[in-house]
């Protein structure tokens, strides 16, 4: 869904959502951010994957709910006693809220991982640190190469039964050997690679630029502005709501309040964008 937008849009949106979700320990905000996280996961990873994340999110909420009273024996409404410890309703409710918050943050992060591939992250931070991006790109290239080579070397060792290791010590030495073969081979490659880099002008004195695969379009700017505006409006409202709400000794009473609306709007951004995309697709056919 964020594919048609600049990576900065996805990053700004997800970073704002994760930040607010982590800060707002208040029942209404927790419910909203859990719902928003699941909706976003539906859109970015598909309904199936989102449903599967419920399979671990709900037990997580239940676990934190049950465990919290064992650690914090505060509150005023006693519902049962375990030995000498009292279990209070407020404590259970606090556990449910913090469990929900944790689950919401984790679900947000699954969306983040789906949207911000290594390439997108690099495109985004490349302007800040171009040298770093080149280095990361090279490392990302080397890791799979080392892994596949390691497998090849191990295969040759395993297959050489005529020279099979006698006992544990030789076996351990053979495994160490894999590492030293990899190192030697890698260094040899490094010489070739540094030649290939110099041959194409690396360090020729010119100031390096970095190729940007993504351009910022008007639509990107518009969505980005919306997201940032919503985030800016929400920040004081969240602080206010959380400051007024107390779990202990008794739960504050929740009231209907207009201040929740901007947060609901922020949560609805992916769904709205998805709906717009669906509508455009249908009307263009």
């Amino acid at each position: 869904m964020f594919e048609t937008y600049h990576p900065a849009v996805a990053f700004a949106y997800l970073a704002c959502c994760i930040a607010v979700a982590m800060a707002a320990l208040q029942p209404v905000y927790v419910v909203l951010s859990l719902a928003g996280a699941l909706a976003c996961a539906c859109v970015t990873r598909g309904p199936g994957a989102a449903a599967r994340s419920l399979a671990w999110a709900l037990p997580l909420v239940a676990l934190v709910t049950v465990v919290n009273p064992l650690f914090s024996a505060s509150g005023s409404t006693e519902i049962m006693r375990l030995g000498s410890r009292a279990v209070y309703a407020e404590s259970l409710f606090y556990g449910a809220c913090s469990g929900g918050m944790l689950a919401a943050v984790l679900v947000w992060f699954t969306s983040y991982a789906a949207c911000m591939t290594s390439e997108n992250s690099m495109a985004l931070f490349g302007n800040v640190a171009p040298v770093l991006v080149t280095m990361v790109s090279q490392v990302l290239r080397l890791i799979p190469q080392f892994v596949s080579r390691g497998r090849k070397i191990a295969a040759v060792q395993d297959a050489a039964s005529s020279a099979a290791p006698r006992g544990r010590r030789e076996q351990a030495r053979d495994r160490m050997r894999t590492v030293s073969v990899l190192m030697g081979w890698g260094m040899e490659d490094g010489l070739v690679r540094s030649d290939a880099m110099r041959a194409r002008g690396y360090g020729c004195g010119a100031r390096r630029t970095s190729y940007r695969r993504f351009r910022v379009k008007a639509a990107d700017a518009a969505v980005l502005a919306c997201v940032l505006a919503l985030a800016a409006v929400n920040a004081p409202l969240v602080a206010l709501a959380c400051g007024q709400y107390a779990f202990y000794p008794t739960l504050s009473v929740l009231v209907v309040w207009w201040g929740y609306l901007p947060y609901a709007a922020l949560m609805a951004v992916p769904v709205v964008l998805q709906a717009k995309e669906a509508w455009q697709w249908r009307s263009s056919k």
């Binding site: 290594s118 390439e119 080149t134 790109s137 090279q138 990302l140 290239r141 190469q145 040899e188 490659d189 070739v192 690679r193 030649d195 290939a196 880099m197 190729y211 695969r213």
Partner: peptide
């Protein structure tokens, strides 16, 4: 060596 002289992780880069 086709592999050793490739510097970056993706084709476009």
């Amino acid at each position: 060596d086709p592999a050793a002289q490739i510097v970056c992780d993706t084709v476009w880069h």
